[in-house]
Amino acid sequence: MGYVVLLDQDLPTGTTHSKLFEKLGAGNNSVAHFQLIYSSPDVRTFAVVPGAVVQVQTSPGANVTAKTTVETAGEQFTYRRTTTANDTGTATIRVAYPGKYTVGSETVTVAREAVYEGATVSVSSEDDGT
C-alpha cells in the first residue's frame, strides 16, 4: 500500500487532484483506490488501497449506486459510487472504504479486509447488511 499527499492548489475541476482534494474521492466519477487518512485545510493524505468490489444483479443497463457515510480523518461525508449494469445485468462497483452500503433497496456490509484485499462482496435480497 502506498500513500498520496496532496496540497491545496488551484487546479481545474475534474482533475484527479481536485476529485481527491475537494471531493475526498467521493463523487460518482471519482477514483476508487484512495482512502482519506489525514485532512487539514492545506493538506490531504490518502492511502492507496485495492478497494472492494460490490457486485449486484439487476436489469441490464440499469444505473446502480452504492453509498455510505464515511467518518475518517476528522471528516464526515457521503461516499457514493455509481455504475451501469452490463448486458447480463451484473453491476460491479469498486469502493475504497469499509462500512454498510445502501445499494438500491438493499444493504451490504463491506469488511475492512475486503477493501485491503480487493475482494468481491455480493448484494443479495437475503443480505441484511450484517
Rank of each mutant, 00 (worst) to 15 (best):
S30P: 00
L24S: 01
S59K: 15
T92S: 11
P60V: 10
V48C: 10
V95L: 08
G51V: 03
V43P: 00
F77D: 05
A62H: 09
I93Q: 01
A62N: 12
V56G: 01
T82A: 11
S40C: 08
V48S: 11
G27K: 10
K23Y: 15
E71N: 12
L24V: 02
V31P: 04
R94I: 07
Q76K: 15
A91D: 02
S39N: 13
E71P: 00
E75G: 02
F46H: 08
F21H: 02
Q55T: 13
G74N: 05
T84Q: 15
T45Q: 14
N63H: 12
T65R: 12
T72I: 11
A47H: 09
A32G: 11
E75Q: 15
Y97R: 10
S40A: 14
P60Y: 10
Q76N: 12
V31A: 14
F77S: 04
R80K: 15
T78Y: 05
G89S: 01
A62P: 01
L24I: 03
S30Q: 10
A85E: 10
T68N: 11
G27P: 00
S39W: 04
G61A: 03
A26Y: 03
R94A: 08
A73Q: 11
V64T: 02
T68F: 05
S39K: 11
V49E: 02
R94H: 08
K67F: 08
A91M: 03
A47C: 08
T78P: 00
I93N: 00
V53N: 08
P50F: 10
N29L: 09
F21E: 01
V54G: 02
K23W: 13
G99N: 04
R81W: 04
R94L: 06
Y101I: 03
N29R: 10
T45H: 05
V70N: 05
K23V: 11
A91N: 05
N63D: 14
T92K: 14
V43W: 01
A73I: 11
S30T: 09
T72D: 08
V95C: 05
Y79M: 09
A52E: 02
K100Y: 06
K67N: 12
V49N: 03
K67C: 04
V48M: 13
V31C: 12
I93Y: 02
R44C: 04
V95T: 07
T90I: 15
A96M: 07
A26E: 07
V56K: 07
F46L: 10
S40F: 07
R44K: 15
K100T: 14
R81A: 05
V48R: 12
R94T: 13
V70L: 06
V53M: 11
Y38K: 13
K23N: 14
A91Q: 01
L36C: 08
V70T: 03
H33Y: 12
F77I: 04
V95Y: 06
A85H: 09
T65G: 02
P60R: 12
S40P: 02
I37Y: 03
A66D: 01
P50A: 11
T90R: 13
V70A: 04
G51L: 06
A66V: 00
I93A: 00
V95F: 04
F34R: 09
I93M: 09
R44F: 06
T83Y: 09
T45M: 15
D42I: 12
E22L: 14
L24D: 03
G74Q: 08
